[in-house]
């Protein structure tokens, strides 16, 4: 079953001008968001994106950008309360 989350929120962006078609991003994406289209990659299912950041981290040409981070509600609350980036301090809470 293909579980899906909220639509139209993913921050993934592709700068096609920088893409060289090496396809490493399609190799690391766990959600089939990207697909090779002839000589460049294409975002085929943006709503499937979970913003894990695997593609942008492994793109040698910075063609892909995404605001990734810990997608855990407790971590985000923790970040808001402490005025820091969401951090998943697993030594205390039961997350991940």
């Amino acid at each position: 079953m293909n579980l899906q989350y909220i639509k139209n929120v993913a921050t993934l962006k592709l700068d096609a001008g920088k893409c060289t078609g090496c396809a490493i991003c399609t190799d690391v994406c766990p959600r089939q968001v990207l697909k090779m289209n002839e000589r460049k990659v294409e975002i085929i299912n943006l709503n499937n994106c979970i913003e894990c950041g695997a593609c942008s981290k492994n793109c040698p040409f910075s063609a892909l950008t995404v605001e990734s981070g810990v997608g855990c509600a407790a971590a985000i609350y923790f970040g808001i309360l402490n005025n820091t980036a969401p951090s998943c301090d697993c030594s205390k809470s039961g997350c991940c």
């Binding site: 579980l3 899906q4 989350y5 909220i6 929120v9 993913a10 921050t11 766990p30 959600r31 994106c49 979970i50 913003e51 605001e67 990734s68 981070g69 810990v70 997608g71 855990c72 509600a73 407790a74 971590a75 985000i76 609350y77 969401p86 998943c88 997350c95 991940c96």
Partner: peptide
């Protein structure tokens, strides 16, 4: 509802932008 929202951290199909919007 809060416990459900908190479960996003354990799933494999949610995104931080989505969780932020929900919160």
């Amino acid at each position: 509802s809060f416990m459900a929202l908190n479960f996003t951290g354990a799933t494999t199909f949610t995104s931080i932008s989505g969780v932020k919007k929900e919160i």
